Simulated scan of single mutants.
Amino acid sequence: MAKNKEEKTNVMRVLEQKKIAYTAHTYPHEEGVAVDGVTVAKSMGFDPAIVFKTLVARGASKQYYVFDVPVAENLDLKKAAKAVGEKSIEMIHQKELLPLTGYVHGGCSPVGMKKLFPTVFHETAENLETMIVSAGKIGYQVELAPHDLAALVRAKFADIIVE
């Protein structure tokens, strides 16, 4: 398949503007159809443990939070609430995602949201050489150093997945 011009997403433009090294990856997809993260990881030839999904939740205080966890894992709402100092948190409804973040379900990235929300990466990311997150569009991912990404979005690392 010949590529005439690599499509750049907003996430890629932000990373370039901030001079953060990344590698772009694509995976086959149907337009507008979100694919589960494990399928995405395998279709790109990566271990699902280094491919992270971005989840958005709302705390009891009505503050929004962003959590990135490996695609094969599930967010533990109690641990996530503790990590951000909330009494409780709940996932936002899918219809709220686009107006709040600027991203669609299946293409949500911690980079380039309309607003910078408090962000937490699962602690396994801290020890990875690179991690992969959505490039802000279904079919596109970016691979980069976890600490570069964490510095950009001011994320912290914590145990936030279901055991």
Rank of each mutant, 00 (worst) to 15 (best):
P70H: 08
K87W: 05
V66T: 05
H105A: 14
E73R: 13
T130P: 04
F121C: 04
T39W: 09
D47I: 06
L116C: 03
K95A: 12
V66P: 01
S88K: 15
H29C: 12
K114R: 15
G107E: 11
D47P: 04
F52D: 00
A34N: 00
V104M: 11
F121A: 00
E86V: 11
K53W: 06
G107I: 13
F117P: 01
M91E: 00
E143I: 12
V51R: 05
V56A: 02
G102Y: 10
P110N: 08
D68P: 00
V40A: 03
T119W: 03
G136N: 14
L116P: 02
Y27C: 05
N74R: 15
A34E: 00
V71D: 04
Y27K: 01
F121Q: 03
E31M: 04
G106S: 07
V84T: 10
G106N: 05
Q63H: 01
G85Q: 05
M131A: 14
M44L: 13
G106H: 10
A135N: 10
N74E: 15
V33K: 15
V71C: 12
V142T: 00
K42A: 03
Y103W: 10
V142Q: 02
F52H: 10
K82Y: 11
Y140G: 02
P118A: 05
K95V: 12
K79C: 04
V142E: 00
E30V: 15
A72K: 13
R58M: 10
V133F: 05
S43Y: 07
Y64Q: 08
S134E: 09
F117W: 14
F52T: 01
K79I: 09
V40Q: 02
D68N: 15
G45P: 03
G32F: 10
G136F: 12
N127C: 04
E30P: 02
A83D: 07
G37Q: 03
I92L: 06
E73Q: 12
A60S: 15
D36R: 13
F67G: 00
V84R: 06
A49F: 10
Y65V: 02
L97H: 00
A60G: 06
T124W: 04
G102D: 08
S61H: 08
V69S: 08
K87N: 09
I132V: 15
A72D: 14
P70S: 07
C108P: 02
G139N: 10
K62Q: 12
T54Q: 08
V120E: 01
K62I: 02
I138T: 14
G107V: 11
I89L: 06
T39V: 13
